[in-house]
Simulated assay, not measured.
Amino acid sequence: MRRVVLALGSNLGDRMAALQGGVDALFEARPLVPRAVSPVYETAPVGGPEQGPFLNAVVAADTALPAEAVLERALAVEEAFQRVREVRWGPRTLDIDIIAVAGERSDDPRLTLPHPRAHERAFVLAPWADVDPAAEIPGRGAVRDLLAAVADQELRRRDDLELRLPD
């Protein structure tokens, strides 16, 4: 089993329902074993066209699946939530990114590991630090240190919202 870290985000429709539905769907068939889910954060969009704020979270899971199979699962869940890819970094019902897979490195354009921009995004780093305070991004450093470098990004923890992991 290897640890996989996934980031989820939504800024269209019922954002919280999309995040919870994404978590539920990811773990439905159990090739991914849930280990932790972060608090929910509300964040301003980064890049792309003008759009509404996102709700973001990170989940950690264990799996024996290869990274490519985890990617296929994430893409299928996005599709089930009517994810549209018309505009790069545009608004979305549900976005699921693989951030890291057990320290694995890959330069494959379809699945770059660790995620090539994770170290620049507070909406990934803050929730990841919540689920694993000792986390590190291979080649970049400790998540907590990287988070300090992006402290100027808009980020608000939403303690009034809570995601549940499946039993």
Rank of each mutant, 00 (worst) to 15 (best):
D152L: 13
L71N: 09
R110N: 06
E50R: 15
A74P: 08
V4H: 15
G48K: 01
E78H: 00
A17P: 11
V40E: 00
A44I: 03
W89C: 13
W128C: 11
I98D: 06
R73E: 11
E86H: 10
V101M: 04
P66C: 14
Q51A: 01
A64Y: 11
A29I: 15
L125A: 01
L71Q: 08
E136V: 04
V23A: 03
V101S: 02
L113N: 02
R30P: 06
P49D: 04
R157N: 05
A17E: 13
V37R: 04
S38D: 05
D145C: 09
E72Q: 09
P114Q: 03
G13Q: 12
A135Y: 12
H119L: 06
R121W: 03
A25P: 10
D95P: 00
G22W: 03
A129D: 07
E120A: 11
A102P: 05
A122D: 01
L161S: 00
V84F: 00
V23W: 05
T112S: 11
L12W: 01
A61N: 06
A60Q: 14
I137H: 06
D152M: 07
V77M: 09
L161K: 02
R92E: 02
L165I: 07
L125Q: 00
L55V: 02
A148V: 07
G141C: 09
A122M: 02
I96L: 12
A142T: 05
A100K: 06
A74H: 07
A151Y: 02
E78V: 00
